[in-house]
Simulated assay, not measured.
Amino acid sequence: MDAPEIHILSVGTALPGPPVDNATLARQLGTHQQFEQWVDTFIGTRTRHLSVDLETGEVNHSLADLGTTAGGRALAAAGLEASDIDVIVMGTATPDALMPATVNLIADRLGIDGIPTYQLQSGCAGAVQALDVGREMLLTGRHTTALVIGGDVCAKHLDIDMDVSSMAPAQLVNVVLFGDGAGAAVLSTRPTPGSVTIKAVLNRLTGLGRAPGQVIEWFGLADRASDRPAGMEDYKAIEESVPVMAGEILKELLDTLGWQQADLDFLLPPQLSGRMTKRIVERLAVADAQEVSCVQDTGNNGNALVFFQLERALERMGPGDRAIAVAVESSKWIKAGFALEKV
């Protein structure tokens, strides 16, 4: 018996609060105009959404809050109820707590119970890993419908009273690069009008013997006394490696499916920052495919990004259209991606 095809029925997303532009962030951090220009030029991100009130420092959205909103929107868009979900898988680098798992808080709020739930600890590849696990669970034939969630809330790593004037670029980039958000998708063995088929998923660790490109500690800048940074970004290593890895991911997915670059209608490239995404797209050189990006406006909200891209892609894809998404995790160099075809 042939394995069933797995389809994405719908996507839902959630962002906390209004967009925060570079000028607002610069004013709040007490920096000069050159800082705003540096962000515009070096990072290329215009706005981000934060789960912390920049005036008071109060965290006003948890990952469970955003994941519940995104999951509820995905269910509503698919025309499904909580009781229709057979399994939930979540990918995140920033759970609200070590325990209980954030995925279970979201399930509780959505009214879901009595099913398997999984939470994967991962950076930007976590959303694809969650998609992969959800897909594999459905391929067993024991389940028909899965809710896949991805998101991150980095508010604990943003101290609004920090002194950024003496920060090295490796630390400063973490202040401006990231935002918060969550996304969710409903996967099913049963296609519906407008759904897309997952044709292939790539998920592979490639970091043997390589130093991490990113380290995020369990603590945040705002909740401990040590001056050890809560986050470290080797941006030069990321700039050198990610475009190369993105090309390798694209080629492997195309080769796996026997597709040519000319067969692609949409490209969902890695969303590190506006500037990095532009470099990657130029290197991939898939001239005939429409780029689907969002990071310039959402900020790098980690495991939510793929869902924001998917949401935009599903709105544009027509019958027979093909798309490939590429994601790279620099924490320990993970290649990830997937290919879609409109039913």
Rank of each mutant, 00 (worst) to 15 (best):
P269Q: 02
T69K: 08
A262W: 00
F42K: 15
D84V: 11
I334K: 09
Q261T: 14
L158A: 10
T41Y: 04
L110Q: 05
T94V: 04
L172C: 03
S165Y: 01
S188D: 08
T144A: 12
M1D: 14
Q119C: 01
F338S: 12
G209V: 05
D234E: 12
A304G: 15
E252M: 08
S226M: 04
G72L: 03
V103Y: 04
A222Y: 08
I324R: 05
V242F: 01
V128M: 10
D161C: 11
S62A: 06
L147V: 07
P16V: 06
T140R: 00
L29H: 07
D2Y: 02
D163V: 08
P212C: 02
G258D: 00
M137S: 13
E341V: 14
P16G: 06
G318V: 11
G111Y: 04
L272T: 15
L15Y: 09
G231P: 00
E217T: 15
A26Q: 12
E136K: 14
Y235F: 15
G231L: 13
L138I: 05
I238R: 01
G274W: 07
S241Y: 10
G183F: 06
A225E: 15
E58S: 09
E248L: 14
M245D: 10
G179P: 05
S188Q: 07
T197N: 09
V87R: 03
H61T: 11
A26C: 13
R283M: 12
T68F: 01
T69R: 11
Q129F: 12
L202C: 03
L253M: 06
V89G: 04
T206W: 03
N303D: 14
A146M: 03
P169G: 09
G274S: 02
V128E: 07
Q129C: 12
G12D: 03
L63T: 07
I112C: 07
S195L: 00
T92Q: 02
T256R: 13
D288P: 02
C154H: 13
A97G: 05
G91T: 02
L105R: 13
K251M: 10
V244C: 03
R73G: 05
A23I: 00
E341G: 13
L305W: 01
Q290H: 14
N104H: 01
E291V: 15
G220H: 07
T45P: 00
G302I: 09
I324G: 10
S330R: 04
T69M: 10
L202S: 08
P169K: 05
V306T: 15
G141S: 10
E55R: 13
A78P: 02
Q33D: 14
V295P: 10
T197Y: 01
A77H: 09
V133Q: 10
D159T: 12
I43Q: 07
P243N: 04
A93M: 12
I106G: 06
Y118W: 09
A222M: 12
E282K: 15
D288C: 05
D132S: 15
D180S: 03
Q129M: 14
Q214S: 15
D288G: 10
G57T: 02
P193K: 09
P193D: 10
F42E: 13
V164W: 01
P95D: 07
Q37V: 11
A146N: 06
S293F: 01
G150R: 11
A285M: 06
Q309P: 01
V201A: 06
D108W: 00
T197P: 01
Q121E: 13
I280C: 03
E217D: 14
F307S: 06
